[in-house]
Write a protein that binds this DNA or RNA. Structure first.
Lengths: 270, 270
DNA sequence: TTTTATGTATTGCTATGCAATACAAAGGGT
DNA sequence: ACCCTTTGTATTGCATAGCAATACATAAAA
């Protein structure tokens, strides 16, 4: 987590950092919060310093402050810091304030009952999708069931669904600046082939991902389109190939996903 | 949201603020983030200034910075700020890093299948409980289904379950400094009667809340106890009185909740 | 015990971030 | 269409908040 690089262009970012309105301390504080992750659940001061590139003093001050504010807590035995419950507060505020999600939730619950598979709602954030609602089915790999999880848009079903709503050029731009690391042997990584898949998605009104993100998983997604014609979200239905084969998914789940997406779009305010 | 008062004692807080390690800018930044909530989904600069008590300049600088960092986004039409998707990231990191939650999730999913009612896992944070896992059943009021939601411990079933694990004195202290506003006409607000309910909970091994938080809702909860003997979490089973009466809940759900709590506690690392 | 590593506390200096103010750009009433 | 009010954006000199170096304390390791 040390030197994570954004492909969004550092130039633009450092431009904004030079703006006199920019408060560097805030940035550093968040950098420390963001240093905590699945791989780094608990961090000591020196580890924080290492992960962020700050010196010990800076790590100390910011960790101290975040602790005082309640965003970090200390494991008394290891004396290391970890994220605290308060981290959940922001999510709550976000979800609660988001009318799209409020609107979508009951439709997704209905969908979940109809197909008895995992149902997700994802949002597009540049080259990634973020899961905002997840209704899990049976036992899934734990990390895969969490809200806020990010996946690359180019290879996820929901990502392709949303990209298919954009114009060709915009979609291609996103695909091309994505980090197109293959997640499975089935992941398409060639931009042209990805764009072909997106074109197909556009034509049929839904995207289908066959083991492109996870071996054994098949996902259909339909885009939720805003009044302005832009993609707002994607409705996913994910299941195991053990339970449903491609034909069945296309025949039964795809129309359901599309219908749900349309219902959600129905009362859009954007 | 302007002058929210912590009953934890301001003295202690301002003591820490005077520590030279305390970075005030971080505090102000978070104060602005926290100004956003259900009631204040979108805020303009002046509104932010009002809500936080800062002057326009401060509001401007911090909003600018949070925007640059990606935690706030601007509604282009209203020019107001709102929380962005990035808010979900912290939750993800927290949940992902929390072994208790990872461990609990599959057991909760099983429980959900067995009782076909809403199943939640909550954690205790001083006088409040925070929902960390929620497996909803059918349509529920939207806000009630979200992760990160807080409820008073004194009147919630899960809260009483966890309080019942503490010693009498500690539990009473928490109850007494809670803001004991009645949420429904059935909410117990008298400390003595609450303590009696907690004692009963301790005796029977589960807590039962009959419409104390929400009219028409019945909830049983069992505490998850850590190796150190402290309450770690609570397992809730919530259903509507239309579906299940008190006797049925006590007979069928209470044992299930207790069993699940024990399973979760089984491999605790704390 | 000595040694090494890591967390905690202190302090003087200066760059950072502050607040006042000026400017621009929308809304909204008449 | 105008004014006037309101709200967002940009600039700047100055003081203080926050920095980095360093010293001290405490815990694990050898």
């Amino acid at each position: 987590m040390a030197g994570r690089k954004k492909n969004t262009g550092e130039a633009e970012l450092s431009a904004v950092e030079d703006n006199p309105l920019f408060v560097g301390s805030l940035q550093r504080g968040f950098a420390i919060l963001e240093a905590f992750g699945p791989d780094a659940a608990e961090l000591g001061l020196t580890e924080i310093a290492q992960a962020t590139g700050f010196d010990k003093s800076a790590a100390q001050r910011f960790a101290f402050t975040l602790h005082a504010l309640g965003y970090l807590e200390k494991n008394p035995s290891t004396r290391k810091y970890r994220l605290s419950l308060k981290s959940l507060g922001l999510s709550y505020a976000y979800l609660r304030a988001n009318p799209l999600i409020e609107r979508a939730t009951p439709y997704l619950a209905d969908l979940r009952r109809q197909c008895r598979a995992r149902v997700d709602l994802s949002l597009l954030d540049d080259t990634e999708i973020v899961y905002a609602v997840r209704l899990q089915s049976r036992r899934e790999a734990f990390g895969a069931t969490l809200l806020g999880r990010r996946m690359p848009a180019f290879c996820s079903s929901g990502g392709r669904a949303m990209l298919s709503v954009l114009d060709e050029a915009e979609a291609r731009a996103i695909v091309e600046r994505s980090n197109r690391r293959a997640l499975t042997p089935f992941t398409l990584t060639d931009p042209d082939r990805i764009m072909a898949s997106i074109a197909e998605t556009r034509a049929q009104g839904y995207a289908l991902s066959l083991q492109e993100c996870l071996i054994g998983e098949i996902v259909v997604s339909a885009p939720v389109v805003g009044r302005n014609g832009r993609p707002v979200a994607a409705v996913h239905i994910a299941s195991s190939l053990d339970d449903h084969d491609e034909a069945a998914v296309r025949e039964h789940f795809a129309p359901l996903a599309r219908a749900t997406a349309r219902l959600i779009a129905g009362g859009d305010t954007n």
